[in-house]
Each structure stands twice: as structure tokens, then as C-alpha cells.
Design a protein around this nucleic acid. Structure first.
Length: 274
DNA sequence: CACGAGACCTGTTCGC
DNA sequence: TGCGAACAGGTCTCGT
């Protein structure tokens, strides 16, 4: 699940609450229950519990694919990786399958980090930049311009698809939204970055923003059993649509493997040589 | 520097 | 039906 739109949706829902799920802002953390030790990137389990209990959740936001909790004295960060999710439940709910960390909150709430594949990680740090350092620009940040993107593209000959997945190049895109953005921009996933014109770079940025904003407006994408509540999976243009007609021209969508990731594109709308 | 392979994990789907 | 292979929203590390 968790690319920029899904993480953004989770951060918003935790901050504002939704029907049947109160906001977590302003609540004390009363207790923690660590169920899979390796979930904790830092610190160790004992220090984690000692430092965390008693703090107040002041705010929740997103940076790249990280969920960032501003606490009264520290920062609590989650990276959901492939299958992580954060769920709000009634206090004292017994652990369910794949729960890795539970936080009992003031107001009879429990915040559960659930992660089937155990790739997700949690940090409790006093300096947030130490974890987020190295992340590339936020694609939705208005201060990031088409010229900035063109500039960065010019500096490498890497293929567009793996480059867009590189979080130091741009923060927040994953396999779904990279494929969707490249299709919207009519760019082949294997195009060398420094071959784009400034105009094409502009189209690419516009396309990236369009698919991310579309994803956010539909609360992200829900596929299989992971992350419910999103709707964007019903609007994929190419992702996991191998063999189905391209929404622009009807040509069957092709699937190739790039950097060990399934990559979906239209051979007609996204030619390599243009 | 760029790229590919392997690791980390579990669950579902596909092909025979 | 059963069973192994392939595949899945991500990132890190190592070898070439």
C-alpha cells in the first residue's frame, strides 16, 4: 500500500479523525506493547518504552513515505514499507494477527501498527532530521519547480523508472504512482533521464502531481488485504493492467521488469525513442 | 557511479 | 485437490 497518497491519507486521518475514528492529536501515550522486536529501528525496547510513555502526540504529518509524529519531547516515525498500516481501535483490544506494536492512548484508544511482512520500521528520536536526511524534494511542494526537476534529471543518465523510485531523487513515489505518472507523461520507463527536454520535464512534474493528487483525493489505493478505505485502485491507467487496453489508445498494456520491479506501460503511447 | 542480485518476510494467486 | 513457483505497495547492502 504505502506510497505518498496512502501515507498522506493515514497522517490526515490520525490528525483529523474520520467517522468512527477519533483523532489522536493531543492524547497522552499511556502504555506500549512491542510484539515484534525488529520493528524498532531505534532505540532499544526498554528505552523506547521509558521515553515514549507519558508523552503527548502533538501532531501527525508525512515526509516522503514516512509518518512523522511530533511528540511533546521526541519524534516518533513510522515507515510502512510494503504491508504496514496504522489502525485506531478501542483501548485494550487484544493483539490481532500481524500486529507489531500497540500504543494505548488517553481517551480509551489504541493505536496499532500492523504489518504482515515485518518490513516496516519505527524510530523514536529527538532529532528528526537524522532519519529524514537524504530524502529528495517533495513533489507536491510548490517551491519545487519544473526547472528544478529538469536540473536534477540532467545530472544523470539513469532510467526514469528506477530514478523515480529513488527516494533521494524525489520523495514519495512508489511502484504504482511511478508507472501511472510515466504513462500520463507519455514517457517510456527506460528513457535515460538526461535525454528529457525541459518541456518534457515540465510534463513529467505535472503528471507526477496529477496522479499523486488524484490518489490523495481517493484516499489512496487499496489492493488485496492491505490498507482498506482507498479507492484509487479502480482508476489505474496501467499498473497491474497487463494485456488490458491502454486508456488513451487501446494498445494492450505491456509489463517488463526494471530494477526487479514489475513495470507497466503502453508500447504505443510511451515509445522509447521519442 | 550505475546496475543487478540477494536479503528481509508473509500471504495470495497461478500453473501444472 | 495439491504443491511449488511467481509475485506483491519498499529499501538496504554487497559485488561487479
Amino acid at each position: 500500500m504505502p506510497e505518498l497518497p496512502e501515507v498522506e491519507t493515514i497522517a490526515r486521518n490520525l490528525r483529523q479523525g474520520i467517522a468512527g475514528q477519533p483523532a489522536v492529536i493531543g492524547r497522552h501515550i499511556l502504555e506500549t506493547n512491542l510484539l515484534w522486536a525488529r520493528t524498532l529501528a531505534e532505540p532499544g525496547p526498554d528505552e523506547f518504552r521509558e521515553r515514549l510513555v507519558g508523552q503527548v502526540i502533538e501532531n501527525t504529518r508525512r515526509r516522503g513515505k514516512f509518518l512523522v509524529f511530533a511528540l511533546s519531547h521526541d519524534w516518533l516515525l513510522f515507515h510502512l514499507r510494503m504491508s504496514g498500516d496504522l489502525l485506531v481501535r478501542p483501548a485494550g483490544t487484544p493483539p490481532s494477527t500481524h500486529d507489531r506494536l500497540l500504543l494505548e492512548l488517553e481517551g480509551d484508544l489504541q493505536l496499532a501498527f500492523n504489518d504482515a511482512r515485518k518490513f516496516g520500521r519505527v524510530w523514536l528520536v529527538n532529532e528528526v532530521d537524522r532519519v529524514l536526511d537524504g530524502l529528495g524534494p517533495e513533489p507536491l511542494d510548490e517551491a519545487f519547480t519544473a526547472h528544478d526537476l529538469f536540473d536534477r534529471l540532467q545530472r544523470t543518465h539513469r532510467q526514469l523508472k528506477p530514478l523515480l523510485l529513488d527516494q533521494t531523487f524525489l520523495a514519495g513515489l512508489g511502484n504504482i504512482y511511478a508507472d501511472e505518472a510515466l504513462h500520463l507523461a507519455s514517457l517510456h520507463p527506460l528513457t535515460p533521464a538526461n535525454r528529457l527536454t525541459e518541456e518534457q520535464a515540465g510534463v513529467l512534474l505535472t503528471s507526477i502531481r496529477a496522479v499523486l493528487e488524484d490518489g490523495i483525493s481517493r484516499n489512496g489505493a487499496s489492493i488485496d488485504w492491505v490498507y482498506r478505505g482507498g479507492d484509487f485502485q479502480n482508476y489505474f491507467r496501467v499498473y497491474q493492467r497487463t494485456g488490458e487496453p491502454c486508456p488513451k489508445c487501446g494498445t494492450p498494456i505491456a509489463r517488463i521488469v526494471v530494477g526487479q520491479r514489475g513495470t507497466h506501460y503502453c508500447p504505443h503511447c510511451q515509445p522509447l525513442s521519442s
